[in-house]
Simulated assay, not measured.
Amino acid sequence: MLDDFACEKFGRKEFKYQHWRWQPHGCDLPRFNATALLEKLTGKRLVFIGDSLNRNQWVSMVCLVESSISQDQKSRTFNGSLFTFKAKEYNASIDFYWAPFLVESNCDDPWHHHVPFRTVKIQAIENHARHWTDSDILVFDSYIWWLDSKIKRLHEICRSGPSEESNGTLEDVEMLRRYEMGLKTWADFLETHVNLTKTKLFFASMSSSHLRGEEWGMGANQNCYNETEPILKEGYWGSMSDPRMMKVVEATIDRLRMSGVKVQILNITQLSEYRKDGHPSIYRRQWVALTEEQLSNPASFADCGHWCLPGVPDTWNEILYAYLLH
């Protein structure tokens, strides 16, 4: 368990958030069976590729399966941007690869990536893809990092800092357009380099954040802090989830399908919208020391984007499990 998601370890005493179960209309999600999944993964490699929400899902998946494996038959290693969990008995690997934009950027260090001058090399993906191209199952996500209004497109990959103009041509690109361009690079690579007879492809839709309490009937300064119940109004949709971005994903995947490349969308957005109760809030490791001002106002440092584990990402993996065992 990574400390970003270990809410009980960091003091959360209320655990009702662990016991809600997603019920889709018209079907039932199958109960997760770790042994059945591991048998399906025998001799295979499953890789989650993307940002910290995808890492959240990777940790969830490892937690869901690892208790079914004896201690001497499992291992976990970190190697740069690649996090690897091995189920030795099954010769199976469940990995996470850090690439928050999917394409290359100056945010590609998995531990030191809070770069104030974010830039993307929007037509470059090969340095990332060599770590996952030959895998059997690929689960991608990329959304929240594209929302920063200060992101620039870079024609040559940069290091970091405001003097990066000397390393190439920087230019501003409107948010939806740069997202579309980045996904086109990703899609073009899949179309020409991935063995479609071997590899199953998935793309997780937007994970929901709960930063604006007025959207569910709380005060303007309220967020997920102290929230212990889900939103029960069916169809609730917060402003942090941009449907225009979702349409860009859908259009990209539709174009891939027309060229014979099938990518299954893991549509996790609506179910996650309801779960304002499921975030770490203040119950996680704080990687930067908090100020006295922050400590006097806990909502100011509450994490309302990631998810406690056990919790919501387990449902995302139940959906993935249903597709894999279908």
Rank of each mutant, 00 (worst) to 15 (best):
L2K: 15
D3C: 08
E8K: 15
K9M: 13
G11N: 09
R12L: 15
R12Q: 11
D28T: 13
R31P: 13
R31W: 07
F32W: 03
N33M: 05
L38D: 04
L38I: 07
K40G: 07
T42I: 13
G43H: 09
G43W: 05
G43K: 07
F48E: 05
I49E: 02
I49D: 02
N56E: 03
Q71D: 14
Q73C: 08
R76D: 08
F78Y: 12
F78L: 15
N79P: 02
F83N: 08
N91A: 12
A92V: 03
F96Y: 15
V103S: 01
H113E: 07
V115W: 09
F117L: 13
F117G: 10
F117A: 13
R118K: 15
R118W: 10
T119L: 13
K121Y: 14
R130V: 15
H131E: 13
S135Q: 11
D136G: 05
V139W: 03
S142K: 03
K150N: 12
C158P: 10
C158T: 09
S163H: 11
E164H: 08
E165F: 13
S166I: 13
L170Y: 10
R178V: 00
R178M: 01
Y179M: 02
L183D: 00
T185R: 02
W186Q: 02
W186P: 00
A187Y: 06
L190Y: 03
T192I: 10
H193A: 12
N195P: 07
T197M: 15
K200W: 09
L201F: 06
S205P: 04
S207K: 13
H210N: 02
L211G: 07
E214S: 14
G217D: 06
M218W: 12
N223R: 04
P230G: 07
M245D: 04
R255N: 13
R257W: 15
S259F: 09
K262R: 14
V263C: 05
Q264F: 12
I265D: 03
I268N: 05
T269Q: 01
E273Y: 04
G278N: 11
H279V: 00
I282T: 07
R284K: 13
W287K: 14
E293T: 14
S296F: 07
N297H: 13
D303K: 01
C304S: 00
C308S: 03
V312C: 09
V312Y: 11
L320H: 05
L320W: 01
Y321C: 08
A322N: 11
